[in-house]
């Protein structure tokens, strides 16, 4: 199929992904150069760091650029990304890894590695730390993004022969360890990831039924999960977004509550999430309504 047909403006997904991957590479190197010019050494997470494991860049749809910096340097880093040079680059700046990992920043940084990208050295987490982060991040999103499950698939499938599972799993709490195993098990169940011979093979063959139910329900949703205040222009969309949050995604709620995916306390975690979010949500909503009444939105 020739994509330059006069009647057609859409490229194939793979061509689009490939082009976007090249764009992202350029932007990642520019971002690193800007940070280093300000004496900040960042770590790239997800994005190209995850795409490295894919057999072909056209298979992954690039998103924003996720950059983690030492929490002590976060304010300076914010100033760097707020400059005009980055006005059309979508950078998601993280102060450390926050809730995504419990290992201390100095340890993660010490274990991080440098990879070559268009003649620029890009710092990424070591493979073991990155797989843990990809898994937790996927669960934090409540498993909504099925396509991002491929990040976990390829990170495991194309891991180095000397990949150290203890370094990946045994540096966090038993609860977080099970999160990672669960994410890998989901990639096994839904994408056919080969887990035979892995040290946690028997655990990974036993995903709780409620997780499968939750995922399959999420993947069937016709409305994407969006920030609720961005849906206020369309009352129908707003109603859908509110109902998508009630009850809260149990996977996400469990992770937010630092809970055990293999336990049976998810209703408690969901209630906690509602209680925690209700106040800030109402505050934002009233603020938004006030702005709208003044005609400032």
């Amino acid at each position: 199929m020739n994509h330059c047909d006069l009647r057609m403006v859409d490229a194939s997904v793979s061509n689009w992904n490939l082009l976007q991957a090249q764009v992202q590479k350029r932007r990642v190197t520019a971002t690193f150069e800007a940070f280093r010019a300000n004496r900040i050494e960042p770590i790239l997470i997800k994005g190209w760091a995850a795409a490295r494991y894919y057999p072909n860049l056209s298979l992954r749809r690039p998103g924003d650029i996720d950059i983690a910096v030492n929490p002590d340097e976060f304010t300076t880093a914010q100033e760097v990304v707020s400059r005009r040079d980055f006005s059309n680059v979508n950078i998601d700046l993280h102060s450390g890894l926050r809730h995504l990992d419990s290992v201390a920043w100095p340890v993660l940084f010490e274990r991080s590695i440098l990879c070559d990208l268009n003649n620029t050295k890009i710092r990424v987490l070591c493979d073991e730390d990155h797989l843990r982060l990809l898994s937790v991040h996927w669960l934090v999103d409540g498993g909504r993004y099925k396509d991002k499950l491929w990040d976990i698939f390829y990170a495991v499938e194309n891991r180095r022969p000397d990949f150290d599972w203890e370094r990946c799993l045994d540096v966090v709490s038993p609860i977080r360890r099970r999160w990672v195993i669960c994410a890998i098990a989901i990639a096994h169940a839904y994408l056919g990831l080969n887990i035979s011979g892995l040290p946690f093979e028997s655990e990974a063959n036993n995903i709780p039924a409620w997780i499968k139910e939750c995922l399959e329900k999420e993947w069937k949703q016709s409305y994407h999960f969006e920030p609720i205040l961005t849906s206020t222009h369309d009352s129908r969309l707003l109603v859908h977004q509110i109902f998508r949050r009630l009850p809260p995604n149990p996977i996400r709620a469990t992770i937010e509550a630092e809970g055990d995916l293999y336990g049976n306390r998810r209703a408690i975690y969901q209630t906690k999430v509602i209680a925690r979010r209700l106040g800030p949500f109402l505050r934002d909503l009233f603020h938004f309504i006030r702005l709208k009444m003044r005609g400032e939105t």
Binding site: C4, L6, V9, A11, S12, W16, D147
Partner: peptide, 16 residues
Amino acid sequence: VIASLVAPQNALAAQS
């Protein structure tokens, strides 16, 4: 022909 490209919908979502 020079055609404008727009992001295709679904991307890899169809892959299961």
